[in-house]
Design a protein around this nucleic acid. Structure first.
Lengths: 253, 253
DNA sequence: CTCTGTGAATGCATTCACAGCA
DNA sequence: TGCTGTGAATGCATTCACAGAG
């Protein structure tokens, strides 16, 4: 039996188990790698050629142990006693994140947000060209937004296949989102970024990420409230014990 | 010594330790509570009065154990054998998330994205009225966007104080973001939602959440790449063992 | 002697599984 | 009996701390 990689896993009958090529990288680490990449790109522009884990972690807003652990998932490309070569690191992170391929983006729903996304330079510049725009509104069909003419949503499959769209962005009203998602999926799009405040149902082989602005606001709101509660609890407790031989009250989290 | 709440923590000298009033709620749970709230609001509109953990969890895209655990942080407001009263649950989650207070929002940077945010109805409707807009461009000063006249950024402190802004949204180019953030902080804003692709430095008492669209794209890209790797590895392995008495190869994650 | 890379330890979050209430 | 609420168990992620390369 050909042992493709020395895998000490017990194979079931008539199966060979191959350990996944790329070491599994924790989801949380992937998100941070993208941030490191951005910071490193800035370093390249500033002419920095070498950087230590301490410096890079500070610039990325994490601690250095976490940074080194994250980079260790990518591989060992640092020099002990010195640090990392910025360009080497950039190219390895890009490889891990799959940025050597081009990823064309389609934006569906050309309202306020869709307009903003179509015009947003950050996609283009970071390797995610917006290749197609869609809307139900027939008055918009053919109208150029950010240099790209809007297509009618009924043409979504043909256009996505032709322009090799690999990422779909949903910027429609919530009622339309699931239907749009279904159409994107049947057009072969396997990655979706969803701005509509709904939970999308998709097959297992489709990856969805969501950005819900109201949820972000509510999380911030929670923290305001918590801080206010703590402050008032501390205040109340201090009032309560006033002159009872205790100097101060501390709130432990 | 007045034991405000039976806290079994060893107090340091001249200190009384008060256990935090609201049980600490995991960060991850807070994000999901906001989602449950949205789903529940939809239920109210549909006239649903009671819902089981199974139904609600399905609608929110999580499993029911997680849902029940999350709700247990809010309190025990379900009826065993029956489920939850939708309205009761809504009001308790709103209380926990601090949505009983009004949270006025200021958007800084009235470019593409700022425009979209100023016009976005989702904030208003979910209790986060946009109360102020700012930009450096003097040509924009006084121009109404989404019904609100833009103020010049130099007036940020006065306007934020006057309109009781509690959440600042940064939608400026990356170069300007840190300076804007500093101004918001000195205007007393303690919550910031940052759309600029930079890591903001803030004091400990300020809460920042970030939305980086390119990072989201790159995370999606990573998953495409991983899937492609797996598929090709599986393919290669299958080719390799062709006709060696093994039926199929399985990739274990 | 400096700074990376990484096992081991700790701390969170998720899931399990069942006691207990309606 | 049906479904919630929750300790206990499991599984991830983060942090520690130090061996070892340069």
């Amino acid at each position: 039996m050909p042992a493709v990689q020395g895998a000490p896993i017990v194979p079931e009958q008539d199966e060979v188990v191959v350990r996944e090529r790329a070491r599994a990288i924790p989801e949380a680490a992937v998100a941070r790698l993208a941030v490191y990449l951005r910071v490193l790109s800035g370093m390249v522009d500033q002419g920095v050629t070498t950087i230590s884990s301490e410096e890079l972690s500070a610039a990325a807003g994490v601690n250095s142990a976490k940074l080194r652990k994250d980079l260790s998932y990518v591989g060992s490309y640092g020099t002990r006693g010195v640090g990392y070569d910025v360009e080497v690191l950039v190219s390895h992170i890009e490889r891990i994140l799959g940025l050597t391929r081009k990823h064309s983006v389609a934006v569906v729903g050309i309202g306020n947000l869709g307009h903003a996304l179509a015009n947003y330079g950050g996609f283009q510049s970071r390797g995610f060209p917006v290749a197609a725009l869609f809307d139900v509104d027939e008055d918009l069909t053919g109208v150029p937004v950010g240099g790209i003419p809007v297509n009618h949503i009924d043409d979504i499959t043909a256009v996505c296949v032709e322009r090799e769209v690999s990422i779909g962005v949903i910027a429609t009203p919530p009622q339309a989102a699931q239907a749009v998602c279904d159409r994107l999926v049947s057009a072969g799009v396997q990655c979706i970024l969803n701005f509509a405040p709904v939970v999308l149902q998709v097959p297992d082989d489709v990856e969805v990420r969501k950005v819900d602005l109201a949820v972000e606001m509510q999380i911030l709101s929670f923290h305001v409230a918590r801080r206010a509660d703590e402050a008032s609890a501390e205040q109340a407790a201090n009032d309560l014990i006033n002159g009872v031989g205790v100097d101060r009250v501390v709130i432990r989290p």
